[in-house]
Design a protein around this nucleic acid. Sequence first.
DNA 1: CATAATATTGACCTTAACGTAAAAGTCAAA
DNA 2: TTTGACTTTTACGTTAAGGTCAATATTATG
Lengths: 128, 128
Amino acid sequence: MNKYYSITELTREFGVSTRTLRFYEDEGLIHPERRGRTRLFRAADRHLIKEILRGRRIGFTIAEIREIIQVYKDPPGESGQLRLLMKRVEEKREELHQKRRDIEETLDELNNVEEACLTRLAEIGVGT
Amino acid sequence: MNKYYSITELTREFGVSTRTLRFYEDEGLIHPERRGRTRLFRAADRHLIKEILRGRRIGFTIAEIREIIQVYKDPPGESGQLRLLMKRVEEKREELHQKRRDIEETLDELNNVEEACLTRLAEIGVGT
DNA sequence: CATAATATTGACCTTAACGTAAAAGTCAAA
DNA sequence: TTTGACTTTTACGTTAAGGTCAATATTATG
């Protein structure tokens, strides 16, 4: 095991461009190894990419994602920093709860739209 | 009743700038009335703004939001269009489901971070 | 060995969603 | 009447997150 992933391998798996992965490296989110100039991605990098993309999907900015990664890499030791972090965590939680409510409401609306479509189709269907 | 809202009234309620509301008008999302040059917003506009901002929070683009509003304003009558719309609805639903999963996972992670903080704080607290 | 696939860096380009600043008009209150 | 709050339009600026293109390796394979 201990496999390496090539960049295109990962772009195919995740449906992103090489530019995107290089961009994430430039932004300090990932740090693939190198053989010569070529990037070699480890399972850990792959996993990190997965998390980055998840963050992206829910609307986190690169800066926010970087911050989160930083916290995992080296968590704060001082109590003031810890409290600050907890406050930020609480804020993010609120934000995500709101987003979840937004999604629920929108899903309800989509259901309504679909039903309206079906009703209308049935009406039309009768006359066809 | 039948009240009008001024633009600043709404910016305060929703925490957005006047630029934003004017932008939404330029983009054809809302159509406030006018008295002279001044915009007068109705309850319906206010409600629409609420929906626009909800869409924004879950990552919809202006174009997508406009499209949704359009569907409500004048739903397609032809069966081909209806089927197309239903397909789009299904896609959106998938997207939102994914997003909801992403949020759940991230909320779990936030919980972990918080717990780690508390644990660490307790450790430090002992020695302080 | 030639071709195709894949890799690199560097540089400029693009799009969305507003921000910001300028110049000017309206209206109420002190 | 002047100050302050609010309004308008026009127009250029900004930021994030990559896209796109060029020029150049490296590598595998038929």
